[in-house]
Design a protein around this nucleic acid. Structure first.
Length: 260
DNA sequence: ATGGCGACGCAACGTCGA
C-alpha cells in the first residue's frame, strides 16, 4: 500500500501536476491539503476519468482537504464532530484492502499559527487539542493513518538553521509537545523511522531560491505502531518543488508491504 | 541578508501563507 500526502497550495493551479504525479507514482491513496476551492467546483469528473475515487471537504480561498483513492472509501467524514470548525481542515475515510483489512486514512491541514502571541496560535492549539480528542475517541478497532500538513517541524533535524528558527512558530516547544502527544497515542513518524538522522525537508518558502534548500519537514505520515513491521519505505519527493509553477510543499510518501 | 514569492479575490493591491 502506497500512501502519499501533498499540500498542493491550490488544486485549481496544481491539478495537472497532481494528475501527472499520480500517474507516475501510482499511490493507493493520496491526501491533499490546501485545495482552496468549494465542493461545487472540485474536479471529481477528472479523477473519475482517471479511475480514481475522490472525496473533498472544500472551502474557497483558504484550506480545503481531499482524499484521492484507487478504491472506494467508506465512512467518509468531513471535519471532527467534536469541533465546530468553520475552516475545512480535515477529512477521513476507510480504505478496505482485498484481504478485508481496513485502514482509516486522514488528511489533515493543521493551522499555521502565524506567531506564538497571536490569536491564530490559540486556534492552532485548540485545533490540536480537538485532534487529540477525536483520535482518542476513534477506538473502533480500525487503524488510523494520520497524514497531512502538520505545520510542525518535530525536531531540530527538521528545520534549517534551527538556531534562528528555534522557539518560533512551527518549531516551538509547545507545538513539538503536541506532536509528541499525538505520537504518544500510538503513532510513529514514518519518515523518521526509516531515515534516522537524515535532514530532508517537505516545504520551502517561495521567497528563498529552492536550490539553497532552506526548508522544513512539516508534512508527515503517522502510522499506528503496529504497522511498523510492514513499513518498507518512507521518503519525500522533492523533485516536484523544482517544476514550473510548483507548490511550496512536496509530496511525502510511505509504502507498506503486507505481502511478506 | 528577516529579504523575497505566489494564490486569491478582484480588477488594484492588500491579505495570507510558513
Amino acid at each position: 500500500m502506497k500512501i502519499a500526502s501533498w499540500n498542493v497550495n491550490s488544486l485549481k493551479v496544481r491539478l495537472p501536476q497532481v494528475l501527472d504525479w499520480i500517474n507516475i507514482n501510482q499511490p493507493d491513496v493520496i491526501c491533499l491539503q490546501e485545495t482552496k476551492q468549494n465542493n461545487d467546483s472540485f474536479p471529481h469528473d477528472v479523477f473519475d476519468k482517471n479511475g480514481l475515487f475522490s472525496y473533498h471537504n472544500g472551502q474557497n480561498t483558504y484550506n480545503g482537504v481531499a482524499l484521492i483513492s484507487k478504491k472506494k472509501l467508506t465512512d467518509v467524514q468531513l471535519g471532527m464532530p467534536n469541533f465546530n470548525d468553520e475552516q475545512k481542515r480535515l477529512i477521513s475515510g476507510t480504505f478496505t484492502h482485498d484481504s478485508g483489512c481496513k485502514h482509516r486514512v486522514i488528511s489533515a491541514y493543521v493551522p499555521n499559527g502565524q506567531s506564538l502571541d497571536s490569536e491564530k496560535f490559540e486556534y492552532k492549539i485548540k485545533w490540536l487539542e480537538s485532534l487529540l480528542l477525536w483520535l482518542q475517541n476513534k477506538n473502533d478497532g480500525i487503524n488510523n493513518i494520520l497524514t497531512g500538513d502538520f505545520n510542525i517541524a518535530p525536531t531540530e533535524l527538521d528545520c534549517y538553521e534551527s538556531k534562528s528558527w528555534g522557539g518560533k512558530i512551527l518549531t516551538s516547544p509547545q507545538e513539538r509537545e503536541y506532536f509528541n502527544k499525538i505520537l504518544n497515542l500510538g503513532f510513529i513518524d514514518s519518515f523518521r523511522e526509516i531515515n534516522c538522522d537524515s535532514v530532508k525537508f517537505s516545504w520551502w518558502d517561495y521567497r528563498i531560491p529552492f536550490k539553497r534548500n532552506l526548508g522544513m519537514r512539516i508534512d508527515h505520515i503517522l502510522l499506528p505502531e503496529k504497522l511498523l513491521p510492514f513499513l518498507a519505505k518512507a521518503y519525500i519527493d522533492n523533485t516536484t518543488r523544482a517544476l514550473e509553477r510548483p507548490s511550496d510543499h512536496a509530496p511525502v510518501i510511505a509504502e507498506l508491504n503486507f505481502n511478506s
